[in-house]
Design a protein around this nucleic acid. Structure first.
Lengths: 207, 207
DNA sequence: GATGTTTTGTGAGCGCGCTCACTTTTGTAT
DNA sequence: ATACAAAAGTGAGCGCGCTCACAAAACATC
């Protein structure tokens, strides 16, 4: 049972490696699962014993990158940052780890992270979103926001974050300064939102 | 030549009608172009003489709804609204016209309006986005914003707007109060952004 | 080893969106 | 009417993601 288990893990990571190569060279949509399986030395159908869909296969890489990004962030966090700085560090840490996947990220993130209701849900994407939002809420809690923000704030956060991902995945400016400006404004806006929430106009009774 | 032209228009609108029916009853992804063509009394391939893709077919309906929404907005606009009120009216007018398409909007808008870079672009979606953003800029201009906001502001606007569409297309609260709150906050946030732009921290040199 | 059981691999095949060589229809010119 | 050109319709067929009945391999028990 040990040898087989090991062989399975080898297959799994060979699929992931080859898929990353092929996705990077041809893009997500122009890569076929047949090609990936063949490159990994397996029959066409075998790939689906390891990943339930092409989308999940790609999202697995994204998910692992984001997990590493969160670890980087925890390591790099000194505790002296203000709220906006810490959120920026968090987001930037994720992007750094996503960097190698950038050439094929567009269609994958669009399908898997978008908040539009879908029939076929990719579990990896759901999980990634929830973990990201949980991390954000943990940061907020550490900065004195006792209770979690309402759905309005978190929905808007996720919209802005997706916008950042979309823009960044296409950003050709030298050091992604364009993306940095977008991240900066987005975060400042979110901080402003949750700071002044409900004191403006009287419409803060969101369930 | 006149009779044929008329027949073509009839075919086109029969396709659109049947497609709307089928999309509404089975959702976008579970509806097949074969079914739609058959329901319209045409062969499977003929549908692609009228619309280059299933996505474009659906986006044509969306696009027409949004055009009507803009006309409604112009009609309903008194000129006495402040900036936020007028933006709210604009967005709400679009949603009203999208209402009949709501059951199948999710996958369509996700594919066609998302800012993630894609290989196969749906022209209808591009156009819809540009026209929407142009209308927003016209509203801003009418309220004293002489020059168009930079890419950061418009990118954030589009992110928030997509978030609104996504949330609304799934909103089951009695009169979409949940969506209304989201629209309200999103617009106030955008107005705040372009009002105070660049005066905060010294990072406003976005190209 | 031989036997039975469970796990993993295989590839023919399905239904999809979409294409394209071909047929049929429509309109024009004689 | 007849011959011809242009436009529109057709459906077999392609490549895709994915499924599933079956084959092969791995393990457990004797």
């Amino acid at each position: 049972m040990r040898i087989s288990e090991q062989a399975k893990q080898e297959n799994r990571s060979r699929i992931l490696d080859k898929a990353a190569e092929i996705f990077n060279s041809k893009g997500f949509e122009d890569s076929t699962t047949r090609d990936i399986a063949l490159a990994a030395g397996l029959a066409a159908g075998t790939i689906f014993n390891y990943f339930p869909s092409k989308e999940t296969l790609a999202m697995t890489m994204v998910s692992e990158a984001l997990v590493q990004g969160r670890e980087d962030y925890l390591r790099r966090c000194t505790g002296g940052e203000d709220l906006a700085e810490e959120l920026f560090l968090f987001v930037a840490s994720g992007l750094r780890r996503l960097r190698p996947l950038r050439p094929f990220l567009g269609p994958v993130l669009e399908r898997s992270l978008s908040p539009f209701p879908r029939k076929t849900v990719c579990q990896e994407g759901e999980t990634a979103r929830q973990e990201h939002l949980a991390a954000v809420q943990a940061i907020l809690a550490r900065h004195g926001f006792a209770e979690a923000p309402d759905y309005v704030a978190m929905t808007m956060y996720w919209s802005l974050y997706l916008g950042i991902l979309a823009f960044w995945s296409n950003d050709t400016s030298p050091n992604q300064e364009a993306s940095q400006a977008l991240i900066d404004y987005s975060i400042r806006m979110f901080v402003h939102l949750i700071s002044g929430s409900g004191a403006d106009k009287g419409e803060a009774d969101a369930s």
